[in-house]
Design a protein around this nucleic acid. Structure first.
Lengths: 217, 217
DNA sequence: GGTGGTATAACTGTATACAAATGTGCCAGA
DNA sequence: TCTGGCACATTTGTATACAGTTATACCACC
């Protein structure tokens, strides 16, 4: 949904900080100062400030009058985000089934194939690729809805959840399971079957939630 | 949820730009340059940039390689946002019924009383107050859930919708109707009745959507 | 008159400078 | 030893400076 422009320093800082916060490197309640960050990261305060403002907008950081305080997300937050997704994402799937383009169907199938490939390998070897492809798949699903609010809302939730999960390693069996759920979604969309798409997505979200719950619970 | 800190220039710029975009003053597709904005508003580029970054994060502005392009929201987007809210806000009401504090119940009742007062006055006289109180009420409802994801997701949607609606004037009869729906919600929460709270909220969202649809439709 | 190339203007990204506010620590005095 | 006050260090908010990039417009040449 955006391709041009070379990645600026501010963008990189934003991504890095978001990851560091959501994956738990910075603890909840910790206070970050612009100056310290700029020294640690070797850039001036300007890009740091822009990244911080964006993270504040995402409610991952919060202004504390004196520096920003790390809010991050908790395990409970994760469960609530699954609750929200379980109530929206099925609807999004129906929309996607109505509006998806042939090109996007093709792309989603390719994404699933790549996922199958990496997921079949030994455990944590391609974990980065697996995670990225999972994000790609969901981005494509949300894009297929043709609805900006659905895209924005769901992508924002998914992005946070994905970065949060980065702290934990997932087993290969779980990855394989997830891929097959994706495959079912892609095929339902390909046949433009609203009901099937909804069901497949709802099953996927519920299963993902269950996987998370008995991973650390 | 945030009280301290005097409102900085950057914050004001953010609020102003967001309002100007969502209320339609800046047209979709229009390109804004930092320099022009800083000259028009009489401040340096720094606070402008921060406001723009936050608006980009909200997906109201988008980077175009050369200045930011106004995205804003459309009538269709509004309907989709109602769809999303209709699927989450009832759940949020159940949560609120479980977790709301006595103080918050009191506050919500007061908000409703104030709304009743202003809504009973002649048409557009107190429109600003009515709108602000509507936002207050929903902020309180979302806060009562005790869930950060619910709060963030729903407040973000509501804020956008409220600013979008600022472009249009609403009739007193509609305002009165809305207040009574709020009152029903507040009373359901006060008796901590999950089912009633859910029903009242779902009715309110559906009614608000209907009001919007036959206002301009 | 049309076209290509170059100078220039506009704009963003980053760094730095400066002012105002606020917390901290040290020192003096009781 | 404890307390009050003052100087200083730290930090944010805003403005400005500078570099690099890209569009644009104009002029020369075909």
């Amino acid at each position: 949904m955006k391709e041009h422009r070379s990645i600026s320093i501010a963008d990189q800082i934003f991504e890095q900080l978001e990851l560091d916060i959501l994956s738990g490197k910075y603890q909840r309640g910790e206070i970050l100062s612009e100056l310290k960050l700029s020294q640690e990261l070797g850039v001036s305060r300007t890009p740091i400030r822009e990244a911080i403002r964006r993270l504040e907008q995402e409610r991952i950081l919060e202004d504390s009058g004196r520096g920003v305080v790390v809010v991050g997300i908790s395990r409970e937050d994760m469960l609530d985000m699954y609750e929200i997704r379980s109530r929206i994402e099925g609807f999004a799937a129906e929309r996607a089934a109505e509006n998806i383009s042939d090109e996007l169907i093709q792309k989603m199938r390719e994404t699933v194939e790549l996922q199958r490939f990496y997921a079949s390998k030994s455990d944590s070897e391609y974990s980065v690729q697996i995670r990225n492809l999972d994000s790609d798949f969901h981005e494509q699903l949300y894009r297929a809805t043709g609805s900006r609010p659905l895209y924005d809302t769901l992508l924002s939730l998914h992005k946070k959840m994905a970065k949060f999960r980065m702290a934990s390693v997932s087993k290969r069996s779980r990855a394989l399971q997830s891929v097959e759920e994706h495959a079912a979604i892609a095929e339902a969309l390909a046949s433009r079957d609203k009901a099937a798409a909804r069901q497949a997505v709802e099953r996927h979200v519920a299963a993902a939630r269950a996987r998370m719950q008995d991973m650390e619970g």
